[in-house]
Simulated assay, not measured.
Amino acid sequence: MRTDFIKMHGLGNDFVVLDARETALPAAMTPIIAAKLADRREGIGCDQLILLEPSDQADFTMRIFNHDGGEVGACGNAARAVGLLAGGDATIATAGGTIQTRANDAGIAVDMGEPRFDWEAIPLAYAMDTLSLPLAWHGLANPVAVNVGNPHVVFFVDEKDAVGLYSIGPDIENDPVFPERINVNVAKVLDRQTIKLQVWERGAGLTRACGTGACATAVAAMRRGLTDRDVTVHLPGGPLSIAWSDDNRITMTGPATEAFRGSFLWDDYA
């Protein structure tokens, strides 16, 4: 049985989207199948596999599987891509909470909800100050921790390009202090409206763009008083606009692109 897919990306962070809103998949999605489809040599290839399903509480449900097959609660770039697929305006249920998308002149804007800062919400293995964790790895120290639908730590440095995130990212991601692993962000604040960012994404590795990472980093900078409440975050794949409003909700705005469509034989990956 052939199954259709849509290949999309947000600033180079790419996705295989399976649309099961009207026609169910031949069988339940599993981490093994997701990882096989995400494989860039023997599968279709992507950073995340996105599964759209019906929802009683929203327009539809978005499930997110990282490159390694692990299911996660949020993906900002995928939310923009799926919002584009839905025609711009949509209410989407995710494991990290319900989000909303809308189309505007700058692309797709996503209401990412409210950030969480309590140590149990990150989660961390034990209580500590999430505004400045008393921890260090390979010269990176005292990050901010925040959950924006998935968990992040944010390090502010003088020169982000000098940080070997490819080699030290796995150590931080898999440290036992983070029971559900962690996304790792290394940022340089250029001025009160501009941040440069590099992200090691949990279960996916070094990525060209990470929407939730941009949100987490912007909020972390705002909490520390380093920036204003509306900033542009520059990632290797391009810029995202992040605003943290007085009602505590984060809005992320940026482009999304459909690359191509195709199909595959389900039994080849099951």
Rank of each mutant, 00 (worst) to 15 (best):
A90E: 05
T91W: 03
T91N: 10
T91K: 15
T91V: 13
I92Y: 04
A93S: 12
T94Y: 03
T94P: 04
T94H: 06
A95L: 14
A95C: 01
A95V: 00
G96E: 06
G96T: 03
G96C: 04
G97A: 07
G97M: 05
G97V: 00
I99Q: 08
I99N: 04
T101K: 08
T101H: 04
T101D: 05
R102L: 02
A103K: 15
N104K: 09
N104P: 03
A106P: 02
A106W: 05
G107P: 08
I108E: 05
A109Q: 15
A109Y: 02
V110S: 11
V110Y: 12
D111T: 11
D111F: 03
M112D: 06
M112P: 02
G113E: 06
G113R: 03
P115S: 05
P115R: 03
D118M: 08
W119S: 12
W119G: 08
P123I: 00
P123A: 12
L124N: 09
L124E: 02
A125C: 02
M128I: 00
M128Q: 14
D129H: 07
T130D: 03
S132W: 01
L133S: 04
P134F: 07
L135P: 02
L135A: 05
W137Y: 12
H138G: 00
H138V: 06
G139V: 01
A141R: 14
N142E: 15
P143D: 03
P143R: 13
P143E: 10
V144E: 11
V144Q: 11
A145W: 05
A145T: 02
V146P: 12
V146D: 10
V146F: 06
V148L: 11
G149A: 07
N150I: 02
N150W: 03
H152N: 07
V154T: 15
F155K: 11
F156N: 05
F156Q: 10
D158A: 13
D158P: 01
E159M: 11
E159V: 08
E159C: 13
D161E: 14
D161N: 13
D161Q: 13
V163H: 04
L165F: 02
L165M: 05
Y166F: 05
Y166P: 00
Y166Q: 12
Y166N: 13
S167Q: 14
S167I: 03
I168V: 14
I168Q: 09
G169T: 07
G169V: 03
P170W: 10
P170K: 14
D171P: 00
I172E: 11
I172G: 09
N174H: 15
D175Q: 09
D175E: 13
P176L: 01
P176N: 10
P176H: 10
F178G: 10
F178H: 13
F178D: 12
P179I: 01
I182Q: 08
N183W: 02
N183L: 05
V184Q: 09
V184K: 11
